[in-house]
Design a protein around this nucleic acid. Sequence first.
DNA 1: GCTTGAGTTCGCCCATAGGCGAACTTCTAG
DNA 2: CTAGAAGTTCGCCTATGGGCGAACTCAAGC
Lengths: 121, 121
Amino acid sequence: MTVTELTVGQVAKAAGVTANAVRFYERYGVINAHRNSGNARRFTVDAICRIRLALAAQRVGITLKESAEILAGIPPLSGDLGLWVGAGEELIRMGRSRIDRLQATVDELASMDFLQNDPRA
Amino acid sequence: MTVTELTVGQVAKAAGVTANAVRFYERYGVINAHRNSGNARRFTVDAICRIRLALAAQRVGITLKESAEILAGIPPLSGDLGLWVGAGEELIRMGRSRIDRLQATVDELASMDFLQNDPRA
DNA sequence: GCTTGAGTTCGCCCATAGGCGAACTTCTAG
DNA sequence: CTAGAAGTTCGCCTATGGGCGAACTCAAGC
């Protein structure tokens, strides 16, 4: 089974982003690429996983950098689903703990009395 | 009891941000202020609530703009705790639904076989 | 009257997350 | 061979979320 090499365009389409974004992710270290003889980036399918996870994580306030750090624990070319799922779960835990902090802020707000002592009047 | 008027610096300290940030939030519409005779911003305590909520929401990927839209439903000078808690809960719901999408992405990943087989399928 | 502290506006700077066009190369097909 | 599609780098542009200094005003206290 040959490792299928993917081009920027193919990764972009599969991940639902633009080719520009894919290049940006590579520069940024979210995904890895090697170059072919003509200096064109070649990716493997794991790039798509990384991008998908990073995008979903972005939506819960996790930066690309943070995602990249977590994804760095997964070897390029990895087909080990356990690693991917583990990384995903870590991102989810991060997101949940942030939600918990938001919840705590709301709870704190709910117990504040200074809002009731009427301002005005 | 008079409406306690707060200065930029007081709000900043109470909300745990810089005075610069407070001015930014006002320009941005997250908080409201009126001006005194010397053109200085004067806030009420609700500005502190708005900032606290917006900051916590930011951490779960909710932008200041989104928070501002939700907070816009609360009248300035509001001492109605129900409104604040309701807005907080809406932000939490938003955050949770984003987490759910991240979870769905991970689940999808966990059921993908192309990582194991040859992607060229 | 003068200093001091806190406020004001203005404007430039930073990082994050890209978009977009220019100009050029490389690959593939006819 | 040649055209077109897709790749490359470079660099400027954008929005978001602020930081920071400059220069100025305002109110209070000595």
